[in-house]
Design a protein around this nucleic acid. Structure first.
Lengths: 212, 212
DNA sequence: CGGTGCGTTGATGTTGCTCAAAGGATGTGG
DNA sequence: CCACATCCTTTGAGCAACATCAACGCACCG
């Protein structure tokens, strides 16, 4: 049922969510699905043609690797998030890698189709402009936290963000990835969790967390 | 000569640089200049109406401040760079501050005028999309370096970037700002410069730097 | 001149990393 | 379904990188 993939992509993706029925039909024609298994690379840098890839089902991480192999998780993707904007709008390759964290499917929109859409629908461009501006703001806030906050504060902030307001929740990522997300080692993460617990800020059992 | 300001803005700004003469005339009508003295705040967060501000003459820094007053310099602006995209495309306030590092002038384009332009010129939107995508890539690379590299490597990379290929050049910023840019204290910056010198990687006399 | 902010240097403290070891979880092939 | 390998996670001990605090010279500017 590739039709289902297309419909769910359109309804999930904020940048496409305000189209009329007629416009939706038009976008439908250009979308094709792509599936990845847990642990697979989603875009292996410059090997593929420019295209926008919208995460439809699953979870993925965007990461950058240093020469000696250490990883920084730059972004955690959930349904509706997309990748490939640099390639699609500038034809330059990104130096990020994207890895599926569980079996995932994307909706793929090729560069030429996207440009046709943008020419026909100027409002769509403005939606993407808003989206990219928000991404910049978030990435700058992330850089600020890396430069100014301690590991202790960065971890607590990330947990509050992941909790989405709930008091109890389950970590949706491995602790290794959490560590790489806030720029510390797994060892330091483990110790920082203990500090937060002994400070009475949260309690943690395996991956189940309560914020106090 | 406000006319001179407008002309130089149009010619300097990459996103406006491919307009026809007729289109340039059209954009002209909407631009107005704004001047700031060294040390002045350029946008004091949410106090002003949404507008895109293109740096025309001078230099400025985009920074974020922690609760206890420490600053992270997120971006260094030179002619052609612009600010205000978040406000203009999303109507949300940015949590960055912008400070003129010397007497500077900007070309200001108000939100309504920009939106009219975008509706009339879809190609302009694509240029800005390319621009914002590049900004995201750079900001992500910056976050990576903050998370993975040592102060030593971050400083050397920044100096190579500022040198623009020249062997000898003069630091265009205070050392205090350089330190805030790479997320370290001025004391550590001073010591890291000494290390680079004793490693034979560069020589430095006040603000004159030679890369070896 | 007399401030005020910048830059350097030294001494000391803290944060987070490295290295090593071991127990748990997960997945795979037989 | 078990045995084995592999990866994740935790814990400990020692160490490196960077911050903090204090002092002082220096330039710039009123």
């Amino acid at each position: 049922m590739s039709g289902n993939h297309k419909i769910s992509c359109l309804s999930r993706v904020p940048i496409f969510s305000h189209l009329t029925d007629e416009e939706s039909d038009q976008v439908h024609k250009f979308l094709r699905p792509a599936h990845f298994k847990k642990g697979e690379f989603v875009i292996n840098s410059s090997l593929s043609k420019p295209r926008l890839m919208v995460l439809n089902r699953g979870r993925a991480k965007v990461l950058r690797t240093s020469k000696d192999g250490r990883e920084q998780v730059i972004r955690l993707l959930s349904a509706g998030d997309y990748i490939g904007e640099l390639e699609v709008f500038t034809n330059k390759p990104s130096s990020s890698d994207v890895v599926a964290m569980e079996d995932s499917s994307f909706c793929v929109l090729d560069q030429t189709h996207l440009h046709n859409l943008l020419a026909a629908k100027p409002k769509l461009a403005v939606r993407i402009l808003a989206d990219l501006s928000t991404r910049i703001e978030k990435t700058e806030a992330y850089a600020e936290s890396l430069g100014l906050d301690t590991a202790y504060d960065r971890l607590y902030s990330l947990l509050v963000e992941l909790s989405e307001g709930r008091k109890n929740f389950t970590l949706p990522y491995s602790k290794k990835d959490l560590a790489a997300r806030i720029g510390i080692t797994p060892e330091t993460l483990s110790r920082t969790f203990k500090k937060l617990e002994s400070d009475g800020r949260l309690s943690i059992d395996n991956k189940n967390i309560s914020i106090l």
